[in-house]
Simulated assay, not measured.
Amino acid sequence: MNELCVWVSKKPSGTLSREQGEYLFNYSSLSASDAVSLTMPVRNKSYVSESLFPIFEMHLPEGYLLAVIKKHFSKLTATDDFGLLSLLSDKVVGRLSYAEEVTQENALSLDEILHSAEENLFSSLVERFALSSPVSGVQPKVLALLQDKATLQFSHYIVKSWGTDYPDLALNEWLCMKTLEQAGLDVPEFYLSDDEACFVMKRFDITEQGDYLGFEDFCVLQAKPRDEKYTGSYEQLAKGIAIFVSPKYRKKALYDYFKAMVLNQWLQNGDAHLKNFGVVYSSATDIRLAPIYDVVSTTAYIKEDIQALTLLGSKRWRGQKHLERFAIEHCQLTLKQAKEAMQQCFEAMNWLNDEVDALQDKVAKNTSKEALLRHFKALITRVLKDVE
């Protein structure tokens, strides 16, 4: 297959094709609301690129999931970018899709994931949902249709696990995301399974009415392929937020972005790259900063890890004075607002300190979990010394 029909909000929008080593996208609709991306407005002229356009590349799996799919399907079909997109096309669910009707897998219960006693649950989920998981990121994850028993509603959730190289990664992410939540940041709905084997996050691009919002990460918005997600700076990201987010939401978006940056520093999240920030929108005039997602303390596993992008010209972790400067010069905040935002983050770190203390009282000695909790205690101590 060298051609895919692209649908926007369940209406045909255009055709993606590959010809003589080039990718082409042609609109069949001339309605501005049918644009496939904020960076690809509707026009008569073809879009042409030597590589897959970032908005479509966003649906391709990476890392673990990519390896699983290639292992099972490389003998049956091409597994280059266009081949992978074609393979997954009838499972892509969202504002953007590649079929009039999307094939849905039979749903599981959310409780089955959170309270399962099955030892190899994640492996079973991969077998069941691998081809229904057009999600990026190198961490082992699948996109699963789950039912909430309390509301009886079906929703898509991203279920993450980890390998032996990253023990207790689900707990790590849960602690980090709870800290962001405590700081008042908008985060997706998320859970930690009882056995702490899985981190479960609800998709945030679906409204309560079941309508799909547009979502684009900053690789797409900066017209960069996924391989360039570690290029650029947090200053450029702040500028991108100011450009793309609608004026009525811009002030809050930059304030929240600054808080996320503070906590990424304090928690030492070295994976806050361009694909881990984005916008959601219902129209070209209603664009918001997406909820903050995929935050983990990477120095728990890579002791000398650095930032994903540069901040004030360096990838070193930055202290209070540098962060205040970043807030004023690039996030359009006053010094008073910057200090207020940092105080909210500081209170969230105090919550994390209490939570880690409670967990340490119950954890067995000389385990990976104890090591992770000691790591968080060291981060908290450093923050307490740095913040005035």
Rank of each mutant, 00 (worst) to 15 (best):
L311H: 03
V126M: 11
V262G: 02
S51Y: 09
D386Y: 08
I328D: 01
L373R: 05
L76F: 07
F326T: 11
F376T: 01
A117R: 14
A35M: 10
K385E: 11
P140N: 12
M342E: 10
D195L: 09
D354N: 15
A78H: 06
V280N: 08
E100C: 10
E370S: 12
L4Y: 09
Q343F: 06
Q20S: 12
P291V: 08
D90F: 02
P12E: 13
I69H: 11
A197K: 15
V138H: 06
K339D: 07
K239M: 03
T367M: 01
V142D: 12
Y98N: 08
A238L: 07
R325T: 15
C198S: 13
L76V: 05
A67M: 11
E62F: 07
K251A: 10
S124Y: 09
L254T: 03
Q236L: 14
P225R: 14
T334L: 12
E181H: 01
V6A: 02
Y27P: 04
K10C: 11
K178M: 08
T164A: 14
W266C: 05
V142T: 04
T151L: 15
T207V: 08
A238C: 09
K71D: 15
E189S: 11
K202H: 04
S28A: 14
F244Q: 02
A107N: 00
K160Y: 03
D294V: 01
F56M: 06
G240T: 03
W317D: 08
Q320M: 13
R226S: 09
T310L: 02
L254C: 03
L152P: 06
S37L: 08
I241E: 06
V220H: 03
G21K: 12
E3W: 07
S51K: 13
Y281K: 11
I292T: 12
G232E: 04
S49C: 13
V6M: 06
L65E: 10
K336E: 15
L263S: 04
Y27D: 05
S13R: 06
E340S: 14
E347K: 07
P291I: 07
R288E: 04
E355T: 14
E118C: 14
A358C: 14
V279Q: 05
S282P: 00
A144H: 00
H322N: 14
Y249T: 00
Y166W: 07
A242M: 01
L323E: 00
S9H: 12
E216C: 07
L192E: 09
Y157H: 10
G232T: 02
T164M: 09
G83I: 12
G214A: 14
E119A: 15
S133E: 11
L274P: 06
G21H: 09
R374N: 11
W162I: 01
L289D: 01
K239F: 03
E355C: 09
A378W: 01
S193W: 10
A272W: 00
E216Q: 14
H273C: 06
S97C: 11
A300H: 10
